[in-house]
Design a protein around this nucleic acid. Structure first.
Lengths: 260, 260
DNA sequence: GCGTACTGCGTATGCCATACGCGTTACTGT
DNA sequence: ACAGTAACGCGTATGGCATACGCAGTACGC
């Protein structure tokens, strides 16, 4: 009722209902000037957390550990970040960064989308822990929106309707993330096995060979015997293949729409 | 050296180096007959864990909680399952189940792959917690291999080489999982927001509208204004769209019309 | 009938996120 | 100039987690 517009409570700062630190990322809501000088800042906390995640993986990022890295107590972090999930969001935003300049006006949509996908992939390769951050909702941070904008930009001259553009964006973004995630999981499994990188795959296929009865699973057995599992292809082999298939499919849609 | 073949240690049971309970899933290694009668079994533990995950989500599955559900002590579970990760693998195997009969001899590859993808999707819809189980390595359990076999079976009359068949399988399986995961994450975010399902999306777009400057992000702003974000499409809309694109792309490859 | 392999499980360790409250600091309005 | 107060750092406590270890009891193979 009365006093609603004067309240300074948690829901303020621009009318959004986002966590305060996310509003800060959009440039709204600066810190108040009362009280003792802050000896810390959300930025420094996020930077320490990102460094820790890069060096030792996301699992090493605990509030206590981040605080230790900064030489402060665990609980002091909560003056800048209201919960660990919020820290995750800020870490994501920081590590994702703004999308690079990807294309000029003459580049056709397929080339654009391909560059976008490769740039996104590089983000994941640079910060593999990003793949492990639990997702909490649709994108609502500046860099996330900037990447989204770039993807829509790629599809501008396709003639697809807005709904299809979203769908293609989701499809490609999902593919890139999934591909990077599977690659990272495989790498982790190899490392956990303790074998050398090439040795691990032959170990795997040898194990599988012993378990798989060719009468029951003839095609899997044949695949193992064919040896394709043992020879690792180029590191971006699956990525190239998958992206080419997806963009071929999108091209069919685009060309179908143009002609009809 | 000597005694290697007589050892009863952890690495035995068929020459594989898999965890004991996974070997049990393949039918190797039954429990020894000495000692007191087991009051429990891996199956009962897994069943309780799966039920718990279905009812309250994967996060509710802790060793202590599963034990409580079974009326035993926490530590007794470790007599049947060597670590929580092993429990995860067994839960996955149990909830995935064997693939259903999907197609007869006359069905063309595209129809086969589509049925396979839908069947896989239904597994995720039936047990959404499957999407949250941390992946620990390549598939090595009977049901996982059975699904793999079915996917390869789908692609049999495509004329693709073995490597391409694996790649297509990975692409489609990855897509299905990613699509289900994104849908589940969205549903979680909506539930966490506390709004009604339709209301949540308009809340989201209203928030975004306030943050996004049309000068900086014209395409995203246009998208928000277009209203497509607010009208939710069919629940399997993104799935149908993405799968159609991917299979169009694969079809182009099969027919030899690949572009790049 | 005895050795021993296996049973269930109590206890303990060392993590984790975070709620709460205390003493302190330094700006703001008077 | 000074009081009020908001924001600071952080010690302590709670309740959760996986799991290492060891002990006492059980029942089968010999």
């Amino acid at each position: 009722m009365a006093g609603d517009e004067g309240r300074k409570g948690s829901g303020e700062g621009g009318g959004t209902y986002l966590p305060p630190s996310v509003e800060a990322a959009w440039g709204l809501r600066e810190r108040p000037t009362k009280g003792p000088k802050p000896g810390l800042s959300a930025d420094r906390i996020v930077a320490a957390a990102v460094e820790l995640a890069s060096a030792e993986g996301l699992a090493a990022v605990s509030m206590g550990r981040v605080a230790k890295e900064l030489g402060v107590s665990t609980m002091s972090l909560y003056r800048y970040v209201s919960a660990k999930q919020e820290l995750y969001v800020l870490m994501q935003e920081a590590a994702t960064g703004a999308p690079p300049e990807l294309f000029g006006p003459e580049v056709p949509w397929r080339e654009r989308m391909e560059r976008w996908a490769r740039a996104m992939r590089e983000v994941y390769l640079r910060s593999p822990w990003l793949l492990r951050v639990p997702v909490s909702g649709p994108p609502a941070t500046p860099h996330a929106v900037a990447w989204w904008e770039k993807a829509l930009h790629s599809l501008e001259d396709t003639g697809l309707d807005e709904g299809a553009k979203i769908s293609v964006t989701l499809l490609v973004a999902g593919f890139v993330k999934n591909d990077a995630l599977m690659a990272a999981e495989l790498a982790d499994a190899v490392e956990a096995s303790g074998y050398a990188p090439e040795e691990a795959m032959t170990q795997y296929s040898r194990t599988l060979r012993r378990l798989v009865d060719p009468e029951v699973f003839p095609r899997v057995a044949g695949l193992i015997d064919s040896g394709v599992l043992d020879q690792p292809d180029a590191p971006d082999g699956e990525f190239r293949f998958g992206l080419a298939r997806i963009l071929d499919g999108v091209a069919a849609l685009v060309e179908g729409r143009e002609t009809s």
